[in-house]
């Protein structure tokens, strides 16, 4: 049963892929729209991985884009400054994938360093430590001349195309889904519901929280690497608190503990964000209003619909088993 559903999900995704690809080659979808779809898929990776930490495990990380910055800069250094590779022959794509994985592992290691001292304590300490971490990582990047400092790392080769981003996002979603329906995933959920009770039934809560946090950081690093190679630059301002908040809004708007919700919200909010940019630009209003909209949205969701769009449920094709079983 399990394999059948996974295959079904992959088939659905491939149909989505084929439609987008076909429409783009026919010229129905412009390059600009395809770019926004690419961004949305990267946000799917970032939002689902943050949902693993914040939604499923019930922690509160505010440094997700900091991990993405680690992934973007490490992979960017490898492809741009060390290997000097350009997209073209298949070999360079293999090197890019290696660089992306190294970026993810580096982010995971940083996550481990931050998570170990902090996750032993109650959830709210993680919030402030990761908030500080996000600021620190930007200060560090700004002060390293090798990666361009405040000018940013320029001239990153454009390896992220629709196919690569799509496959990575698909793999992320499948891996996270399998993780959540494994015994680790059950442990994460039990920590969210009641840390003391789960400790009493033998869950090593600190260990499970660190596992969730490190895996989330890994995928954030992967997402950052893809983002850097899509925009062909990595800049400290792209990984600021504002961007982290955008991913947070996606997680809570989509619903804590719902991968489907994060996917829907990642697409919805990326398109909303672009729409607001065009709209606000057209009527000549300061771009800051966009963030005011997000802030109000975040407060409203928490006050009136804490469980988000999906209310903690999943689309049927994302469940590994049938509902009636």
């Amino acid at each position: 049963m399990r394999n059948k559903k996974t295959i079904l999900f992959i088939v659905y995704s491939l149909i989505f892929y084929a439609i987008i690809f076909l429409f783009h080659s026919l010229g129905i979808i412009s390059d600009y729209i395809l770019h926004i779809i690419n961004l949305s898929l990267i946000y799917v990776i970032l939002a689902t991985s943050l949902n693993l930490i914040n939604g499923f495990t019930g922690q509160f990380s505010l440094g997700h884009m900091g991990f993405a910055a680690v992934g973007a800069y490490i992979s960017g250094i490898l492809t741009t400054l060390i290997w000097h590779i350009k997209p073209g022959n298949p070999g360079s794509y293999v090197l890019f994938i290696i660089a992306m994985l190294v970026g993810g592992v580096a982010a995971a290691l940083v996550g481990l360093l931050i998570g170990l001292p902090t996750l032993r304590l109650r959830g709210d300490y993680l919030a402030i430590v990761t908030l500080g971490f996000g600021e620190i990582i930007r200060t560090i990047i700004n002060n390293i001349d090798y990666v361009g400092g405040p000018r940013g790392l320029l001239g990153i080769p454009k390896f992220s195309n629709f196919t690569i981003i799509f496959i990575t996002a698909l793999l992320t979603v499948i891996l996270l889904r399998n993780l959540i329906f494994s015994s680790h995933g059950r442990a994460f959920l039990s920590i969210r519901e009641d840390p003391i009770a789960s400790e009493l039934v033998g869950v090593n809560t600190t260990r499970q929280k660190v596992i969730a946090f490190v895996i989330g950081a890994f995928f954030a690093g992967i997402g950052g690497a893809l983002l850097g190679h899509l925009l062909t630059l990595a800049h400290p301002t792209q990984y600021g608190f504002m961007q982290t908040v955008m991913v947070l809004v996606m997680v809570y708007a989509g619903g804590m503990g719902s991968i489907s919700g994060s996917i829907v919200a990642a697409f919805g909010l990326t398109f909303l964000s672009e729409g607001l940019r065009i709209l606000l630009g057209a009527i000549g209003v300061a771009i800051e209003w966009r963030m005011v909209v997000y802030a109000v949205l975040l407060i409203m969701i928490m006050l009136f619909r804490t469980s988000g769009i999906m209310g903690g449920r999943e689309f049927n094709f994302l469940l590994p088993f049938n509902k009636e079983e």
Binding site: F60, D124, V245, L248, Y252, A295, V296, L298, M302
Partner: peptide
């Protein structure tokens, strides 16, 4: 905690 973040951003 999340609304506090929202108020701060706002």
């Amino acid at each position: 905690l999340i609304t506090a973040l929202g108020v701060s951003m706002f």
